[in-house]
């Protein structure tokens, strides 16, 4: 579709199926470190500041146990998704119906082209489908989650 070199949005290395954290910021920071280790975020603190700025405009929790901290940031090299699955107690992302157990940290480069944005848009659309959420909750390991998400975004 695109002539650009597109890196997959997610890989097994960007998935933490035992996500913990005292609050959303701590959980987000853990996922951000995964992105930094994979070379997709150049400056973790700078990126987290951008995410926090967005989070403070309005919490990103969505009913149904979802948190989507996200930002467009100059510290991001490629559009990426880090995914964390928490225990049943979950992590509070400010949704009205309680904490989130599925956390999607979406990182978009500042000047991201519209093709990149189209992929992220597709991911966002997927998140409102119950079947997609269910399959993520039921996936046995990181590799399975990575395949699930990559398949869902295939054009």
């Amino acid at each position: 579709m695109s002539s650009e070199d597109t890196v997959d949005l997610i890989s097994a290395a960007l998935i933490d199926l035992d996500l913990t954290g005292a609050d959303r910021h701590e959980a987000t920071a853990k996922l951000a470190r995964l992105l930094a280790d994979a070379g997709r975020v150049t400056d973790v603190d700078g990126f987290l500041a951008d995410v926090r700025a967005r989070e403070e405009q309005m919490p990103t929790g969505i009913e149904g146990g979802i948190g989507i901290p996200h930002a467009r940031s100059a510290h991001v090299t490629a559009p990426s998704l880090a995914f964390g699955r928490a225990t049943k107690e979950g992590i509070d992302f400010g949704a009205a119906d309680g904490p989130a157990d599925l956390v999607f940290l979406i990182a978009a480069p500042e000047g991201g082209g519209s093709e990149h944005m189209t992929i992220l848009a597709k991911l966002a659309r997927k998140l409102v489908h119950q079947s997609f959420k269910d399959s993520l909750r039921g996936a046995p390991d990181a590799a399975a989650v990575s395949i699930l998400i990559t398949e869902a975004l295939r054009p």
């Binding site: 989507i68 996200h70 944005m117 992220l120 848009a121 966002a124 409102v128």
Partner: peptide
């Protein structure tokens, strides 16, 4: 505000 997540979730 960011235009990468909620916009599309709401649309869907």
């Amino acid at each position: 505000p960011t235009g990468i997540a909620h916009t599309y979730m709401a649309a869907e």
